[in-house]
């Protein structure tokens, strides 16, 4: 159950009312791989993650977790299947303690004993959270809240992790810590990570492959190393002049 899983999205179509936001989008994430998804505001990045997570209904296409179609599952069941999303804005339970926030990550999928063990592992990973164990989640700094949101997703031993804008609102130094942590998670847990980022340069530097999302479609896809040298990507996302030929 708790082995790393692959994620495959095929021809996914998502919309709100008469507006279609994603027009038949396909991507995949393999175990042990960090895949980033970059694109301008409103390109549909968060919508994609929420559609995969079952928060937003899907109109067409498939979402396969280790080959099994999970498209029809609702959000709690997607989470219980091992596909965890760390949502944009972190969304920690502000009035609940750090410990309670973490324990709730294992709701319905772990035993009391397992949660206790996982909690200690997470405190080893994030010593800051252990210090703040009894504080309400809402009193933590932005970076600590991001750690808490990631820790909450880890309690259930996820098979694949999706992170929505983990650097949002964080100071550059804190962002660096968060990205270092994401790299560590991949190495230590061997799970696939789908990373949605505004901070395109950081995302490209730390990921293996990258998809570029523009207006609900995958405009470009390749290894992150290649895209970092691509003049179009440089111009569009990294604010650099296209190199003269």
């Amino acid at each position: 159950m708790n082995t790393a899983a692959s994620l495959e999205v095929r021809d996914l179509r998502v919309g709100y009312g008469s507006l279609e936001v994603l027009h038949g989008l396909s991507l995949n994430v393999q175990p042990g791989e960090i895949v980033s998804l970059i694109g301008a505001n409103g390109a549909g990045k968060s919508t994609l993650l929420n559609a995969i997570s079952g928060v937003v209904p899907v109109r067409g296409g498939h979402v396969l977790l280790d080959g099994k179609d999970i498209r029809a599952l609702k959000a709690p069941d997607v989470a219980r299947a091992g596909l965890r999303q760390v949502p944009e804005g972190r969304r920690v339970f502000a009035d609940l303690t750090v410990e309670d926030n973490l324990l709730l990550g294992g709701y319905g999928t772990t035993t009391h004993h397992q949660r206790g063990e996982r909690l200690e592992e997470i405190f080893d990973l994030f010593p800051r959270l252990k210090e703040r164990r009894w504080q309400p989640g809402g009193t933590l700094s932005g970076g600590e809240q991001q750690m808490l949101a990631i820790g909450r997703a880890l309690v259930a031993s996820p098979r694949l992790l999706m992170l929505d804008e983990p650097s949002m609102g964080l100071a550059p130094l804190v962002t660096r810590d968060v990205f270092a942590l994401i790299g560590r998670l991949r190495n230590e847990l061997g799970i696939g990570i789908l990373l949605v980022e505004q901070n395109a340069r950081a995302a490209l530097k730390m990921s293996d492959r990258t998809y570029v999302l523009t207006l609900g479609e995958i405009q470009q896809h390749g290894t992150s190393a290649d895209l970092l040298r691509d003049p179009k990507v440089l111009a569009a996302f990294l604010g650099e002049e296209t190199a003269p030929n």
């Binding site: 928060v55 609702k74 709690p76 069941d77 989470a79 969304r91 339970f93 709701y107 319905g108």
Partner: peptide, 24 residues
């Protein structure tokens, strides 16, 4: 109890609770 805390979590942020596997 975890179930009581889950009830609070649902009232604080239903979407985050759902992403934790809690069925509101």
């Amino acid at each position: 109890t975890l179930i009581g805390k889950a009830m609070q979590a649902v009232s604080l942020d239903p979407r985050a609770a759902a992403l934790c596997g809690i069925n509101p």
